[in-house]
């Protein structure tokens, strides 16, 4: 396993495109949370000045979102909007191999097909780990700026963040294995994740009661809802229990991996 990681490292170490996007993504995690933090701070601050024990405030915002313990959930949720970027990186890293035909060369040189695809899967896991780690650290940092004492009550959401990231990236890997070309893979991935699934979500909501949460990407997003408007959310978007969503999400990840391995094992490359 270690030699596969080393091999991937040789491939990305001097790949500037990868590092620029990856570092901007990591900065993006901090930036997106900073923006949300500032906006909510303004709303909360203004409202709190008018009426310190505002029922309205509690209704809309719940407790202050960037304080412990909500901060774990809040940062995980805010950061999740950026998960399409690790997905993009996954597509780039994989379709590059097809463009340069280096996947062929790797096999010719003596890698098994299983090892090759595993090296990509390991890369995805590492990218997700780094990303999750930063989400955790960001949450901790913002938590300390809040006015509540340190609490790990909602730390579980950081774990969900990892699973969510795996879902996004493995879905991207699946699309790349199926389409092979970078342009079309990126196009299909973005259009599905950004637009198509939301369309499906509302179609499902309308015609098949509340099953939209079991769609591939939605099953990941459904793990972490914003700790805001929680009552409103319950009213308009009643959700299945998280454990069912979690099982679905993990089920999808397993399914992606199964198809990826099967497809790559038998394809002409």
């Amino acid at each position: 396993m270690l030699h596969l990681i080393k091999l991937e490292w040789l491939k990305v170490k001097n790949y500037r495109t990868f590092w620029i996007i990856f570092i901007l993504y990591l900065i993006g995690i901090i930036g997106a949370n900073y923006i949300t933090h500032e906006i909510q701070g303004m709303i909360w601050g203004a409202e709190a000045k008018k009426n310190p024990s505002s029922a309205m405030l509690k209704f809309i915002l719940g407790n202050p979102p960037y304080s412990f313990p909500q901060v774990w959930q809040m940062v995980a949720q805010t950061s999740s909007y950026l998960l399409i970027i690790p997905g993009l990186l996954t597509v780039i890293l994989f379709t590059n191999e097809y463009s340069y035909k280096t996947h062929r060369q790797n096999l010719i040189d003596g890698l098994t097909r299983y090892e090759f695809i595993s090296s990509k899967i390991l890369t995805v896991i590492i990218i997700s780990l780094i990303s999750t780690l930063l989400v955790g650290v960001t949450a901790l940092a913002f938590g300390y700026t809040g006015d509540k004492p340190l609490s790990f009550e909602r730390l579980l959401f950081i774990g969900y963040s990892f699973i969510q990231s795996l879902n996004y990236c493995f879905f991207a890997l699946l699309i790349s294995v199926l389409f092979r070309r970078s342009g079309i893979s990126i196009g299909v991935y973005f259009i599905y994740v950004v637009i198509l699934e939301f369309v499906l979500f509302f179609v499902f909501k309308r015609y098949v009661y509340n099953t939209g949460y079991f769609l591939p990407v939605e099953s990941a997003d459904g793990l972490i809802s914003a700790p805001l408007f929680e009552r409103g959310q319950k009213e308009f978007f009643p959700k299945p229990e998280v454990k069912y969503i979690l099982m679905t999400c993990i089920g999808y990840i397993a399914l992606y991996l199964l198809i990826i391995y099967r497809k790559f094992k038998t394809d002409d490359l």
Binding site: K11, Y15, R16, N96, R104, Q105, D109
Partner: peptide, 13 residues
């Protein structure tokens, strides 16, 4: 082996 075309990463030396 050299198969068909040289297969290398364009961005690496």
């Amino acid at each position: 082996t050299l198969l068909e075309t040289p297969n290398f990463f364009h961005y690496l030396s």
